[in-house]
Nucleic acid binder design. Structure first.
Lengths: 275, 275
DNA sequence: GGAGCGCTGTATCGTATGTTACGTATTTTG
DNA sequence: CAAAATACGTAACATACGATACAGCGCTCC
């Protein structure tokens, strides 16, 4: 079974004429980067002419050069999605139901945070800690618990935190309370819910700043969002995993808490007194 | 020091207008593959126009689009040569908010699963998949979302799944419906809630099998529980972390789903039909 | 409420890129 | 050794890609 272009080349390099063989060798030598550049660059790097490069990719079975490049890109993408850690850490023995799931989840978290800068998080935290406006949270079918979780914590350290739950008509009417200074935190992963998209759009029209938690494919709500957090969700299971997003939520809760330290502490003490 | 384009984006995304920010977000979401494609593909993926993409790369400091692509390619090449060193998000200096939190969370998960045998999980999954009895789920102040999350998933693949919410008096009365064949899943971490303990005790007296999700210090409910899952919760934050428990929940959901494969699949198809 | 500014998309343009045709060189075969 | 076939490069071509000018729109600030 031939799965990569590199293998394909190794398979056919024997039957190639001299010029094309040089092309093949230079591609293998710095695989696959040269193949992503232009035909002209490729040809000079290999010391042959452009048509030779084109004949080379044609011999590999591609209709044209762009198709060849797309194939290389797909390969790269697949390679990048399964982080090196997985190949370095042997697929832990036993192979029960636990390990693959856990490993994938850990990878997801690392990947998610790799694409998430410290600055972005502190920006969002600052926005959430800004007490001039209200904070609304809402989630989809399976992600609403995340919204609840976040709301439960934020509500402890600051006022005006509202989790939008129940019937759609219920929270749709809350739009009337939302304005420019307010923040709407939305959780929406595949399959994206129309009702949420509509809600986000209307909120956006009212000037509400939207913080979106979604998957790597980005919910259409990203159109309206001020901040987008894209978490990895793929795991060897029938379901998508929200664990990475969950960890981001906890991180954010921690960051907001730190920013509200002074006020928050007093508030918490008061609360304790009320219990 | 800014070494990667991803960092560059994170640094400037705050100062970008809406359209360019969408470009930035889509690039980050599937970094860096989109950036290697054509402007047209990039723009449609981001839902903006081509000029916006070009303005975006210009704002990042590149003279033109090809220069931007070359830069991405160089980054990729460097990354591929030393897979072990992932330079995207450097171990944030100055002890940022991200790293310690994430590291602690990952450690928690590894520790949690180290003390959790495959057998224990499959046992619990089997119990939950047993359709002769009903399944009730309930959680504490901050862990109730976990119960909801689990309930939302289980309810899709089997009938008789109930999340106990609302006023204490509401779910206390549901005790009347619980019997020997039923399972009660309880989430309770510090500070343990008296109301939950009392509820668990009464359920236990009625012969209900209790599955307890708690922290490493074990809620008093462990006395009555048939299965106890102890997750690590310590993180460098003002709050405890439920992330490890969350991952266990997802793992369990996956395991139950697998056990109910045959029935579950038909059930899901039926549900799809109803939508 | 009006004027100004900044952002965004449409339409157009120039050009770099991939592609092809053709002539020359090189190798192969009878 | 001659003749044919194959391989390769040069040069012209067409397409599609990135770049730019311009107009419409919304927003902010007087």
């Amino acid at each position: 079974m031939i799965s990569s272009i590199a293998e394909l080349i190794a398979d056919r390099i024997g039957t190639m004429p001299a010029g094309e063989r040089r092309a093949a060798q230079t591609l293998i030598a710095s695989y696959p980067m040269i193949g992503l550049k232009t035909v002209a660059e490729f040809s000079t790097a290999a010391g042959v002419s452009s048509p030779t490069i084109l004949r080379f990719v044609a011999r590999l079975g591609f209709q044209n050069y762009p198709e060849f490049q797309s194939s290389l890109q797909d390969e790269l993408a697949a390679q990048l999605q399964s982080p090196a850690i997985r190949t370095l850490n042997p697929p832990s023995p036993g192979g029960g139901t636990v390990s693959p799931m856990l490993e994938a989840t850990l990878d997801n978290m690392r990947e998610t945070f790799r694409h998430l800068s410290d600055k972005q998080l502190t920006d969002i935290a600052a926005r959430l800690a800004d007490r001039r406006g209200k904070t609304f949270l809402i989630g989809g079918r399976f992600t609403d618990p995340l919204a609840r979780y976040m709301a439960a914590h934020l509500a402890v350290i600051q006022p005006d935190v509202f989790h939008l739950a129940g019937q759609e008509s219920m929270w749709r009417d809350r739009l009337i309370d939302m304005g420019k200074r307010d923040v709407l935190v939305i959780f929406d992963i595949r399959r994206y819910q129309d009702s949420l998209v509509r809600f986000a759009e209307k909120a956006h029209q009212r000037g509400v700043q939207i913080v979106l938690f979604t998957d790597q494919w980005l919910s259409p709500i990203a159109r309206f969002a001020r901040h987008v957090i894209a978490g990895r969700t793929a795991v060897p299971s029938a379901w998508d995993s929200s664990a990475a997003l969950f960890v981001v939520v906890e991180t954010l809760i921690g960051a907001v808490t730190r920013q509200l330290e002074a006020d928050g502490a007093r508030r918490i003490r008061e609360m304790e007194g009320l219990r």
